[in-house]
Design a protein around this nucleic acid. Structure first.
Lengths: 235, 235
DNA sequence: TTAAAGTTCAACCATATGGTTGAACCAAAT
DNA sequence: ATTTGGTTCAACCATATGGTTGAACTTTAA
């Protein structure tokens, strides 16, 4: 066991992650991964049988470690929608600032191989024992339900559609990462400026989501009440 | 000129468009395109020299015909922001409902090859003679400027950031297409239901954008004033 | 009618690429 | 010191893939 301690396996995974995220599965070359890892190509097969298997391991790992915790937030019945939104959006941005290529990578591979990925993501999402979903689910019935409740209470806009709102929120989160180059180019930003933009964006997206969701009066009231607490909660 | 009339060239482009949009450049196979076009692989090279060239032709064509007109809306100084938003969002949805894979395709290839694509898109965007941009631009200085003006007039939310808003609007538009499978699966929708969802989404995104942008009072006033007209303008 | 030009194809080529082989290397156990 | 078993590599293999050849076919024009 020469190198179990100085883990080649992890070195390979890191290199593969980079290459796959940059090039996509089809565009990635085993040789490129080996080069990036600074090892012989054969090692890739020694540790991970095939390109497909290596990809699967990484995809599942990324999904499980990074996306699935975010999905869980939106299914947590302990949390109020408002808290769900705050945690999700902040969590999303914090995670993706660390892994900026992940959103496009996941979306692209998902689109190319829905069946396989769906299957994989089922394993990743912990399902609380009580709820036994008849069909595979990616997100958020709780989220939906609570919004209806808030509408009934008169806090939220009556004409807001929970599903449309959820897609809007997701879209606001993903776009700044997925279309980074277009945006950064259009605004003529440096990398540092773009990082700052993303950092700030977190709170903007929360604000945007709430403006869509809440009645103006309730939003103002909510802001006053939560301003200090949220300062603490953040960072 | 056997077939200049029964245009092989167009048949190839259609097939190539499908395959490229489905598989991406790296994942696309020339043989697959030939099969989908029902012709010999050699024809692809006869009409379009190489894979790369065929790809470029299609990418540029799609960008020029479909995306660029939308970008132009946001740079049109004749139009008020509100009108820009309405036309852009409606236009975007109408175009992408016809070409649902286009957003992800463009974004993905853009991300993989920024330099080349940027260069290409420069040609596609007609620049009015007056403005001579020192740097390449994808979008919308007019849009930005007008929002500042609306804030000054007290119609728009003072704390709205024009760039953040623009990214949010774009994100709300793209996400329903880019992440179609996730969304459709999560909501357990049939294809028909999803089409209906997209059709409805158009107006929701406009509504969401305006809720972010406008002060509530102005939004209400605006809605009353524009309700009938917009009914006409739409469809 | 015939020659020139444009179009189509089956077969072929060179290279790139995922994957394998067999030997060398190294660390620990005997 | 020697064996054992995991680890690493250079060279190799089979196939897939982008691209080409040369001949056949079809249309146009003289």
């Amino acid at each position: 066991m020469t190198n179990k301690d100085s883990n080649t396996e992890e070195i390979i995974k890191d290199a593969a992650r980079n290459v796959f995220q940059r090039e996509g599965f089809a565009g990635a070359r085993m040789q490129e991964i080996a080069d990036e890892a600074g090892i012989n190509k054969m090692m890739l097969h020694y540790y991970f049988r095939s390109k497909q298997h290596l990809f699967d391991v990484i995809f599942e790992e990324d999904y499980t470690n990074l996306m699935s915790p975010l999905a869980v937030i939106l299914r947590n019945p302990e949390l109020h929608v408002e808290e769900q939104v705050i945690r999700f959006v902040r969590g999303y941005h914090e995670t993706m600032i660390e892994h900026p290529r992940l959103p496009l990578f996941l979306i692209h591979e998902f689109a190319k191989n829905p069946h396989k990925v769906l299957e994989m993501t089922q394993k990743a999402i912990p399902v609380s024992k009580k709820e036994e979903p008849a069909h595979p689910r990616l997100s958020a019935t709780t989220f939906m339900d609570q919004i209806e409740e808030g509408k009934a209470r008169g806090h939220y806009n009556k004409d807001v559609d929970a599903r449309q709102l959820a897609v809007s929120m997701l879209g606001m989160c993903t776009h700044a990462f997925v279309s980074r180059i277009s945006v950064q180019t259009a605004y003529e930003m440096t990398d540092e400026q773009y990082m700052k933009f993303l950092e700030e964006r977190k709170e903007h997206v929360i604000d945007h989501t709430f403006r869509i969701l809440m009645k103006p009066a309730y939003f103002e009231k909510w802001k006053k009440k939560n301003l200090k607490e949220n300062e603490k909660t953040s960072t």
